[in-house]
Design a binder for these strands. Structure first.
Length: 586
RNA sequence: CGGGACGUGGCGCAGCCUGGUAGCGCACCGCCUUUGGGUGGCGGGGGUCCCCGGUUCGAAUCCGGGCGUCCCGACCA
């Protein structure tokens, strides 16, 4: 399932006004003419240039007043939608006693900030709040009559990221809307999960994002099921596999596909060894043999806790580490000396035939069909016509990465790969946290059960950054209407005593009275050109220019930021006309 | 954690190779000019050249160590 950023039928998409307008003079709004030298992502460059954020250190950003307006609007949307499904807002500490994390086995994670208080008690800074919410549930919930519950907060998270990057997209400290559902049973969890799914759809739609909901790996959260909400962007760190009609969408970390088979031709009666001097890579082997990579089997050796594992995938595919980890657990690449010992050959000439049983062999499921060229476990030689089951034995599993153009596992439609920003996720936790922390309730018959939980997160700053990634041009940001810092940006040309200023002040009050958030650029000593350039950099939906040409007859020049199209509005009834125009744009 | 790059007024950069006066654009201050697309002119203020140590008569520049930031990879609710 996915939606694009439009307004779904029947859904009202109200604005999320802050109910406050600004006169710019005297305020802190530090814009920059040039991109920051370190910035790579468009959202990073524009967020800094438009005066929304300033960097304090790696992965640590101060949100400037203009940027905070955007986040407040996103948060208002989130509050409205969470409240709509009956969730209650609360606020839990960032600083937390370590022993609660020890109970769930999550104390000591590499990204966790740990320290001691003055009395020596081990503390952590919260990466998330499952432990704390469950700790409270264990103390406050006694009876089935008190379930279900949904609790949420909008609170800072702290994670010692190995590598902060892409401006605000991966940081060490960030605000998250995190919510948690408490249910009696699995059926209750399904209902809470569905309610969140609906709320999240509304939040991302109202925020004006193009987004997809995809199947995801449960990762360190654990639990029985999970989805991620992904906003397509070249700056994204994740990749999803999806079909054009959204009949299938999944994170590539677990995406499956139907590979198309090459024309294998008849297999020889037995493998045939042939010389391949100096051939080490799939590319070289493909060129040397004249066979397409899909007819070559790639051998990758890893060392799991249980011992060496030979992994076979077709030449066109990559071994997928996470899929493999689901089968063999933690593992590492093998050292050259180990490979020499187990195979008697260099990494470029390895294969599954004739191994002595010390090595576990796992073949990708595609290898079960056809016959392949593999290494001969003899330097400078390969085998052709190698058939799984006849010439070697192996477990088969899906251990390959998905390729663009392969078929969807649902109906075979072609898959495309899309880089995305993860803007939210939802998890079915089950009793993973309620069991160790003793969050239980009594049912009607007086029997004790563990509370069945779900956890749901959204990053407001990521929504804002994804919106910039998806909405900008060479002049600056183009905000979605609902999360723009202001609805209307008025450019005043003229000093404080001018008739223009007097008129601008009246219009400012009228527009604010209609519920619009208005920014009035009443700064003096700035050229009109500078004000125009900064207005387009900031990217509010509408820009109004008030100068000598405006008075006394008008018209009022209004620019729609998206497309930079000019609309003229008569002075008579201007405020209403502008409000209507604002309503009419996306 | 592996690999690479960078660190010089607030921002963006040059200078470094070949050691000796720290420079440019923007921003900032003053005066004038200008008032519908980052106006134009004149005059100014501001820099521990990331830090520590070494070489040298002399270090932004050469050498060693450290720190910081970014990028690629690994990692990542």
């Amino acid at each position: 399932m996915s939606r694009d950023g439009g307004t779904p039928d029947g859904w009202r998409v109200p604005q999320a006004p802050l109910g406050s307008s600004w006169r710019l003079s005297g305020r802190l709004w530090p814009t920059q003419r040039e991109d920051p030298a370190d910035a790579e992502a468009v959202s990073h460059k524009l967020a800094v240039r438009a005066g929304l954020v300033r960097q304090l250190a790696a992965g640590l950003y101060t949100i400037m007043p203009m940027g905070l307006r955007v986040l407040k609007r996103v948060e208002r949307i989130m509050r409205e939608e969470m409240d709509r499904i009956g969730a209650q807002e609360m606020l839990m500490p960032i600083m937390q006693p370590a022993d609660i994390w020890e109970a769930t086995g999550r104390y000591g994670l590499a990204e966790q900030y740990r320290f001691e208080d003055r009395s020596g008690r081990p503390m952590v800074l919260g990466m998330t709040h499952e432990e704390i919410i469950t700790w409270h549930a264990a103390r406050e919930i006694r009876s089935y009559r008190e379930l279900p519950q949904m609790w949420y907060q909008i609170q800072t998270k702290e994670r010692d990221e190995p590598r902060p990057k892409a401006g605000m997209l991966r940081v060490r400290e960030f605000v998250m809307k995190d919510s948690y559902s408490l249910d009696r049973d699995e059926a209750g969890l399904e209902a809470s999960y569905a309610a969140h799914s609906d709320a999240y759809a509304r939040i991302f739609d109202r925020s004006g994002l193009v987004w997809y909901r995809v199947e995801s790996d449960v990762g360190m959260m654990g639990g029985s099921g999970a989805h991620e909400y992904m906003a397509p962007s070249p700056a994204g760190e994740d990749v999803i596999a999806r079909t054009a009609d959204d009949s299938y969408a999944a994170n590539v970390e677990l995406a499956r596909s139907v590979a198309r088979d090459p024309d294998f031709g008849a297999a020889p009666a037995a493998p045939e060894e042939f010389a391949t001097p100096g051939i080490g890579t799939i590319e070289e082997l493909s060129a040397f043999t004249g066979l397409e990579p899909a007819r070559l089997a790639k051998s990758v050796v890893v060392v799991a806790d249980s011992g060496p594992v030979l992994c076979l995938v077709r030449g066109e595919h990559q071994l997928h580490e996470k899929k493999l980890a689901h089968i063999v657990g933690h593992h590492r690449a093998a050292h050259p000396e180990e490979i020499q010992e187990w195979f008697g050959a260099e990494p470029g000439s390895l294969g599954p035939v004739g191994l002595d049983g010390r090595v576990r062999v796992i073949a990708d499921e595609t290898i079960a069909r056809g016959h392949y060229v593999t290494g001969a476990n003899r330097d400078g030689f390969h085998l052709r016509g190698v058939v799984l089951g006849r010439d070697f034995q192996a477990e088969t599993a899906d251990i390959r990465t998905v390729l663009a153009g392969e078929g969807s596992p649902v109906d075979g439609r072609p898959i495309e790969l899309v880089p995305v920003i993860e803007v939210g996720n939802i998890f079915k936790l089950g009793t993973k946290y309620s069991d160790p922390l003793g969050a239980r309730y009594l049912d009607q018959d007086g029997r004790e059960h563990a509370i069945v939980m779900g956890s749901y997160g959204i990053g407001p700053a990521r929504i804002a950054m994804a919106a910039i990634e998806q909405g900008h041009d060479e002049h600056g940001i183009i905000w979605p209407r609902a999360i723009a810092p202001f609805d209307v940006h008025m450019v005043l040309i003229g000093d404080a005593e001018s008739p223009q200023a007097e008129y601008a002040g009246r219009l400012y009050e009228q527009l604010s009275g209609l519920g619009l958030d208005v920014l009035l650029d009443d700064r003096e000593g700035m050229s009109p050109g500078e004000k125009f350039v900064e207005a387009e950099l900031l990217g509010c939906p509408l820009r109004i220019t008030i100068g000598r040409r405006t008075l006394p007859e008008g018209p009022l020049e209004v620019q729609v930021r998206r497309g930079r199209e000019r609309r003229d509005v008569p002075l008579e009834g201007a405020a209403y006309a502008i409000h209507r125009l604002w309503l009419s744009i996306g």
